[in-house]
């Protein structure tokens, strides 16, 4: 469960102060599949960074899995990211010198999980995203869709509260993008909370809830379909 209440965030750009988020309140229930959409400059990235605990808001409350996450120390935010957030990026962001399995193991290293257990869990995750036969390939030996699936396996491996995907299909062709989106739907069906940041209306339409951002504020929240129960 994610609850944002009255989140403000301003940036200084030279002499000007830019309000990136001006009082955003938002609720994403556990198990939801929500999309955040909006034109560039609408505050999508800032909101996503705050939800992902990469950044802290200037004011407002952000409760993640029952914990206040708005005013955490750097170290605590690292731990929260490690335990509760699974990032999926547009640019995949895999370590180029590490193979698929090692990439997926990464979050578990920072949790202090031993090598054998790491390997076990990472292998399961890669199997779950359909890459059982690509575990020892380097990212450069994988297709775009396969790389994004490695990234998804890496996001899932720590059993996070929420899967946070920032334009996950932006670097993929339509067919592969569809594949990835189906994977998200499948994971959501299995109970994972998925938060998708996108500027593509077709993708957003697949989510249960669409949150529209404009000029640093929520302009609309649409429930496109009934929540599965």
């Amino acid at each position: 469960m994610i609850v944002l209440t009255d989140i403000y965030k301003q940036y200084r750009m030279g002499p000007n102060t830019v309000t990136a988020l001006g009082g955003v309140s938002l609720e994403v229930p556990t198990g939801a599949f929500a999309a955040i959409v909006g034109p560039s400059g609408s505050g999508k990235s800032t909101l996503m960074n705050i939800i992902g605990c990469l950044d802290t808001p200037d004011s407002g409350s952000y409760r993640l899995a029952g914990e206040e996450a708005a005013e955490l120390s750097d170290n605590r935010r690292s731990e929260v990211r490690n335990r509760h957030i699974g990032f999926v990026f547009q640019a995949f962001n895999l370590l180029t010198r590490a193979n698929a399995l090692e990439n997926v193991e990464l979050p578990l290293i920072y949790r202090g999980v031993g090598a054998r257990r790491r390997r076990e869990v990472a292998t399961q995750m890669l199997e779950r995203v359909g890459l059982a036969d690509r575990m020892h390939h380097l990212p450069s030996e994988l297709s775009g869709g396969q790389r994004q699936r490695v990234a998804i396996a890496r996001a899932l491996v720590g059993n996070p509260s929420i899967l946070l995907a920032d334009e996950p299909t932006g670097a993929l062709d339509t067919a592969t993008g569809e594949e990835i989106l189906s994977l998200f739907e499948k994971l959501n069906a299995e109970g994972m909370t998925v938060l998708l940041v996108t500027h593509e209306p077709e993708l957003a339409a697949r989510a249960e809830t669409v949150v529209r951002l404009l000029d640093g504020g929520v302009s609309a929240i649409e429930n496109t379909k009934e929540r599965r129960s």
Binding site: G52, D74, E79, Y110, R154
Partner: peptide, 16 residues
């Protein structure tokens, strides 16, 4: 830098 960013996003602390 990118690698460092990735590691941070995945939960690496400054000390790591």
């Amino acid at each position: 830098t990118r690698e460092i960013g990735i590691r941070m996003a995945l939960g690496a602390k400054s000390s790591h």
